[in-house]
Amino acid sequence: MAYFLELLISGALTGLMYSLVALGFVLIYKSAGVPNLAQGALVMTAGYAVWMVMAWGLNVWIAIPVAAAIMFGFGLIVERLLLRRMVGQPVIMVVMLTLGLEILLRGLVPGILGSTPKPIDLGIDFAPIIIGDVFINRTSLYGGIAALALVGASLLFFRTRLGTKLRAVSDDHVSSWAVGISVERAIGISWGLAGIAAVVAGALWGSSQGADWTLSMLLFPAVAVVILGGVDSVPGVVVGGILVGVLGTVIPGYLDSFAGGSTRDVVTSLIILLTIMVRPFGIFGREDIERI
């Protein structure tokens, strides 16, 4: 039972750390309708950015905001230079563009900054929090808290004036234009926000494994999270994250000893497949997906 509980908790926390990656995806999809498959690479870039700023000798608590500023700007630039020119193109073009960006970043960032894993020391204590026989990983815990905080902040943000504009944009581009909202600016900001979310994800994930290109592989579980939660739902990120994390931890936790291999990728794949089969728009997504 304690084993199950531990798997449950660590799974939920891990899932919330996926949510950090997924949040950026949802923010962009919600406002621009762009499925950003480069979000993993954005997290990697953010991880490198945090490392780089820390390498300048800055304290981690200063480094993260500085990196966030850098990534916000980076998001704006990406949107301005690339995505804005793709408006009206079929989804395959947009998907492929973000994949191209992902590949480009995966070459560019390690190519310039070096490909060996870069340490990011957030100063988080190694000792687990022990409740009974349940060990809770502090990095995951802080990651989970950060994810919840970011999602909460996003939700609050959507209540602000700017956030309302973003919501309007996400509802209908043309109408938003009509009432004088700068759709481009709104979409740009959502890219910037996705950059900030990537910094938190990059810093936390980077602190446990080092920042290198493998951070970009977080995309896959993040995709499972957004599909499950709904591609345009911010709260869906939390629920989807927890579900993906728990299923991806609990099931392999019991199954691996029989299947003789890690089943997490299988679970993640199945989550994506089943969701798409049963409820393509996810748990909280809007049911406007075109179906036969």
Partner: peptide, 14 residues
Amino acid sequence: PLMIYGAMIIGFLL
């Protein structure tokens, strides 16, 4: 090669 490959995809799409 990765950079070229990625840039190529982006370039063509744009």
